[in-house]
Simulated assay, not measured.
Amino acid sequence: MKIGVISDTHIGKNLYKLKDFLGRHLNDIDMIIHAGDYKTLAVVNTLKNFERFVGVWGNVDDKDIQKLVKEKEIIEIQDYRIGVFHGHGVKQTTIDRAYKAFKDDNVDIIIFGHSHQPIIKTKDNILMLNPGSPTNKRKERWFSYIILELEPQNISASLRLFIEKQ
């Protein structure tokens, strides 16, 4: 299973940027996971065009988006339990808030966003993935996303960095 992992798209009027990114970088995936901060319903509806889409809402997402996706999600794929949470909140770091959101859920992987800083690391035997942002890099040098590949005996997570075409 090949999964495209994104977060923090923050798309308002420029939906073409997301569509362009999806066409260039995620055209051969089996599933897409978005860790929140879509900003508009149009982004959620665009992602729902994928055969398999899982998403959670973030701190900039309004009530209309919150009706379509949960704040926290746990999915099971090929015997892996994957927790998805945006990472917003107060106190602690983003990664610590994401970890704490699933402390009693026995997950193998946690996908989160919020900081716009891409991360692939382990924390107490859990794979922690923050894809950064493919459309709103803030202070990061590159736009980013993660390709997560799951096989029965193997997990591969690769960070993909790119510069937006002008």
Results as ranks from 00 to 15, higher is better:
M1W: 02
M1D: 01
I3R: 12
G4S: 13
G4K: 09
V5E: 01
I6W: 06
S7C: 12
I11A: 02
I11W: 00
K13R: 05
L18H: 00
K19A: 03
D28Y: 15
D28R: 14
D30Q: 11
M31S: 08
I33R: 03
H34E: 12
A35M: 13
K39E: 09
T40K: 12
T40C: 07
L41G: 13
V43G: 09
V44Q: 06
N49S: 14
E51H: 08
F53V: 02
F53S: 04
G55C: 12
G55V: 05
G58W: 12
N59K: 13
N59M: 11
D61N: 09
K72D: 09
I77V: 15
I77H: 05
G83R: 04
Q92N: 12
D96W: 06
D96V: 06
R97C: 14
Y99K: 12
A101T: 02
F102V: 01
K103R: 11
K103T: 05
N106K: 14
V107C: 09
I110V: 15
F112M: 12
G113A: 14
H114Q: 15
S115K: 14
P118W: 08
D124S: 15
M128G: 06
P134A: 11
T135I: 07
N136E: 05
W142D: 01
W142G: 00
W142R: 00
F143I: 01
I146S: 06
I147P: 02
E149W: 00
L150K: 05
E151R: 14
S156L: 05
R160M: 13
I163H: 05
I163A: 09
E164W: 08
